[in-house]
Design a protein around this nucleic acid. Structure first.
Length: 469
DNA sequence: ATGTGC
């Protein structure tokens, strides 16, 4: 793929052929090694009807279903712009929640192992069914509409939690009626579960603070213990994505839309198919949020019991979502359907949607790294490109199969324990697939994101204990 | 990511 370096950490793929906009990739040359397949996807996305500005990619770009993971694309809703399930991904509303404990690492040390045992015991995880508790159809309905708000209303959390959640914990335009029987069936038995793959619950320690005042506003300080939860909407979101890809694949011809890859199946955002997907997607987003709220409550109970510590929510933000947002295009405000797939919203200071206590510092951006390295907390910056978006994680470089061939799960656990990371895996195979070597260097990804002017570093966290599917 | 692969 041909591209030109037009600024620091900024590469442009010129518009040509059926591309409606150029490609704009924020990365370093090093991060773009072996990115040929995903850059092809950046070009494919640039052909979508109604796309504005550019087909963007974040520094953690890698190959995904149709759209690259690490891709951001916005379409003009009032000018035939499309919505595409592939632009969100199978794990709708996959995201991260960070909680800060009122203790530091030294206080936790003597109880770390019993704490990890406790967390390992209460966190449902792995493929297939299994949640914190089974819910009825009526409760599921409320989860799909209410997200984290439902959980808090039921006593699983505090009102303050909702102020520290993207959208106050619930996407308002959820249409539970668009979530069909099969998706509901899968969702019923997985409420409050972690899942598998790269999802995790980690106990972490803040090792570095890059910006004291912002960290303080977020509730973070050096040496502080934190809990990071990374999970999504499980089988429910997966079912919704599959169903709507199929429906849009059939509907495209009727709208006269052709795409270079069937996996880019889409429909006008303002069409029956587009609205149906957006409504179902928002319901799945609420499911993912309720999921993280319930897991946070489980962690709170264990922390209280084992360490006498309290967990305060720093923030909860998704990195797989499409949202209708208003942004200026060529100086004119437009309603855009912003697809972020493996990309995190990063509102700058002063943004009206931020809660009052974060208004002056910007939105916390939560970047999960790998079990053996680090995770980061960033913040949005003024003038951040790509519709206020930044990276979402380290980004895979090895396939799951390849990763599992380089190391055994038991061997990896021994290595991590030696490095002071307590591990509570469900399966050895699952653990091996997530070996840190399978990922890009998250520090490099974060440096590129900051260097490209998408965000600013606030704190670095390292794992003390990992609960995995 | 996923009751993991048409």
């Amino acid at each position: 793929m041909e591209y030109v370096e037009e600024g620091p950490y900024r590469f442009r793929i010129a518009r040509r052929g059926t591309m409606r906009v150029p490609g704009l990739v924020f990365a370093s040359r090093q991060l773009l090694r072996d990115a040929e397949k995903s850059l092809r996807q950046v070009v494919d996305v640039a052909t979508l009807p109604g796309i504005v500005d550019a087909s963007y990619a974040m520094p953690d770009i890698h190959w995904g279903y149709g759209f690259p993971i690490g891709g951001v694309a916005a379409t003009d809703v009032d000018d035939g712009g499309v919505v595409s399930p592939g632009g969100v991904g199978f794990d709708i509303s996959c995201g991260v929640r960070l909680l800060a404990a009122d203790c530091d690492r030294r206080t936790l040390d003597p109880v770390l192992h019993s704490l990890m045992d406790g967390l390992g015991h209460v966190v449902p995880r792995g493929a297939g069914p299994g949640g914190v508790w089974p819910v009825t159809g009526r409760e599921l309905e409320r989860i799909l509409r209410g997200g984290s708000r439902y959980a808090v209303e039921e006593g699983h959390g505090e009102e303050r939690d909702l102020r520290r959640c993207e959208d106050g914990g619930a996407v308002s335009d959820a249409d539970a009626g668009q979530v069909d029987a099969r998706a509901r069936e899968r969702g019923l038995g997985q409420v409050g579960s972690l899942g598998s793959g790269n999802h995790f619950l980690e106990v972490q320690q803040v090792t570095e603070v890059y910006d004291e005042p912002v960290a303080a506003a977020f509730g973070l300080a050096a040496d502080q213990v934190c809990v990071m939860i990374h999970c999504g909407s499980r089988g429910l979101g997966h079912q919704i994505c599959s169903d709507h890809v199929r429906m849009m694949d059939k509907a495209m011809a009727r709208y006269g839309i052709t795409v270079p890859d069937r996996q880019l199946a889409c429909a006008p955002a303002d069409s029956p198919e587009g609205r149906a997907y957006l409504g179902a997607m928002a319901a799945a987003a609420n499911y993912g949020r309720a999921n993280r709220q319930l897991l946070a409550e489980a962690a709170r109970r264990v922390f209280r019991r084992e360490a006498g510590a309290r967990l305060t929510l720093v923030y909860d933000v998704s990195h797989n979502l499409a949202k209708v947002e208003t942004h200026a295009v060529d100086g004119v405000p437009r309603r855009l359907c912003v697809h972020r797939k493996g990309a995190t919203r990063a509102f700058p200071p002063g943004h009206p949607e931020l809660p009052e206590d974060l208004r002056s510092v910007g939105q916390p951006v939560l970047i999960p790294g790998t079990m053996g390295t680090a995770s980061y907390v960033l913040t949005g910056v003024p003038g951040g490109g790509a519709f206020h978006s930044t990276c979402h994680g380290a980004g895979r470089v090895m396939s799951r199969h390849q990763a599992a061939r380089t190391i055994g799960g038991e061997q990896l656990r021994a290595r991590l324990e030696e490095d002071g990371v307590a591990v509570r895996p469900l399966s050895w195979r699952g653990l091996a697939e997530e070996t840190p070597e399978a990922y890009k260097d998250v520090t490099e990804v974060v440096a590129a994101s900051e260097g490209a002017g998408l965000c600013r570093k606030v704190a670095r966290l390292v794992p003390l204990g990992v609960v995995k599917g």
